[in-house]
Design a protein around this nucleic acid. Structure first.
Lengths: 262, 262
DNA sequence: TACATACGTCTCTTGTAAGAGACAATCACT
DNA sequence: AGTGATTGTCTCTTACAAGAGACGTATGTA
């Protein structure tokens, strides 16, 4: 078998060079579709997850048959299927925090007119689990499920509160510390922020992800000291201090209401 | 090695006796969790899907690591995970019909006070994709994602409209024709119902799934002649003819609004 | 103290699925 | 028609995962 696999462009992957488990391929496929956020051709999908075409065809067929994926309108593209929606609804039903959190977020954004979000850690990454747009003409609506480096956000600081330094270091890559505009945060500063957020019980960041917004966040506890989620508001950066602190008060109140035994 | 075929204890399963693909096991696991609707121990899960314990442990670990499943509160039970929720939301986002359908259903049930549902074919089975409870004291709320034999429902008759007889026969098993109360429908009658529903553009069934309710349904088209979904109302069986036909009118109107180019 | 049942981890074997690649059929440009 | 890229299907090999089962531990109950 010659020196076979040659090159393997190896975009940084680890694989020593041999076969990959089908289930893992499937998980990659799902994640890939989640990032593309749209139906995609099977060929492109194979490229996207860096899997052999034949394997991809086989797996996709299984998944389509099972209803986890569906062929999209024109006929040779795939995207998520009804079954994933059903499973997702099951998750919501079985998860009090999420169910109530969604309501609170919707309510909060209607009440304040600002974009409001429910955020959680998702396998070590910051994830917007639910968001409600707000009524401003220019709203920065980040899609549900979007994953953002922890250091870029106020919520990230709260979600890590209570963790050991080593745990934090494990979760935050060097790239994560580089903001969208190129500035680089110092890890120590970030860790200091986390500690401070843990003590004060809220967190505000200004102009981190972009230059026009402030992010206000408050923790939701699943147990004393354990931050399970955060609620946050995304407001224009020139929001007055007075309004900001009033919003923070509201936010903390609502987040506390979500907390167990709150 | 010996005479091979070795009995195969075969506890009733069909398999000729050998190994099952991991991905299939996973699909069974997910389906099983969907039917149980609650967190379950890994041992029971293995029993439930009739898989070896060791295999089940391995697969569950992969799925938990990937976030498709989560360990439930007490620590040794599993249920659906956040990631499935995120994928489900992606599905909703990519699916106009579902998104608008959910709204219409919610609105319709608020407006009429009756239980309202959006239904679709899901891999050859009838599925309640979204339902909104209605305001009656005794409401028959079937869970989202519930799968019911096609012949039991009004929606089932509409969803099959336009299909060939052979296709229908393929989708309907003999068991499906037996109603919950033991009565058995004749296949020919069912097919006649389907044809009639296709022509009239709505369908009403009385006392099929249970003795106390009527089911009114109207088709949602994704293309001329192609029924993609149905909206339906579940009302008390003694609803007056007058109110029934007024509800049907409303229902057909809303369903038409959902249809493409409607 | 025994006895039974459940849990979680590990080892080893072998059936089988992941993968390479060939193939015909479209499609999209010249 | 000519060229190249892409699509869906199929075959064959072998690396590897599915599965059987043993093990140690943690329950519960007579």
């Amino acid at each position: 078998m010659q020196d076979g696999n040659a090159l393997t462009v190896s975009d940084g992957e680890k694989t020593p060079g041999s076969r990959e488990k089908g289930l893992n391929r499937v998980l990659e496929i799902l994640d890939f579709l989640h990032t593309t956020q749209r139906a995609i051709g099977i060929g492109d999908l194979a490229k996207g997850v860096n899997a052999p075409r034949s394997t991809t065809y086989t797996l996709v067929r299984s998944l389509v048959d099972a209803g986890l994926l569906e062929m999209a309108g024109d006929g040779n593209r795939v995207y998520f299927g009804k079954k994933l929606y059903l499973y997702g609804m099951d998750y919501v039903r079985g998860n009090d925090l999420l169910r109530r959190g969604r309501q609170e977020v919707d309510h909060l954004s209607r009440e304040t007119g600002e974009t409001s979000e429910l955020c959680m850690l998702q396998s070590g990454r910051y994830t917007i689990v639910h968001s409600s747009p707000g009524t401003r003409p220019f709203r920065i609506s980040s899609a549900t499920g979007l994953q953002i480096p922890l250091p870029w956000t106020a919520s990230g600081r709260l979600l890590l509160a209570g963790l050991e330094r080593v745990e934090i270091e494990a979760m935050v890559s060097d790239d994560d510390l580089v903001l969208p505009d190129g500035r680089k945060l110092r890890l120590d500063d970030f860790i200091a922020d986390i500690a401070k957020a843990g003590v004060t019980g809220y967190c505000v960041t200004s102009g981190l992800v972009d230059a026009y917004t402030k992010c206000l966040a408050a923790p939701v506890f699943s147990a004393p000291g354990k931050v399970e989620a955060t609620m946050c508001l995304v407001v224009p950066i020139d929001t007055t201090d007075e309004r900001t602190s009033s919003l923070i008060g509201l936010l903390r109140d609502r987040a506390a209401r979500l907390s167990i035994a709150g």
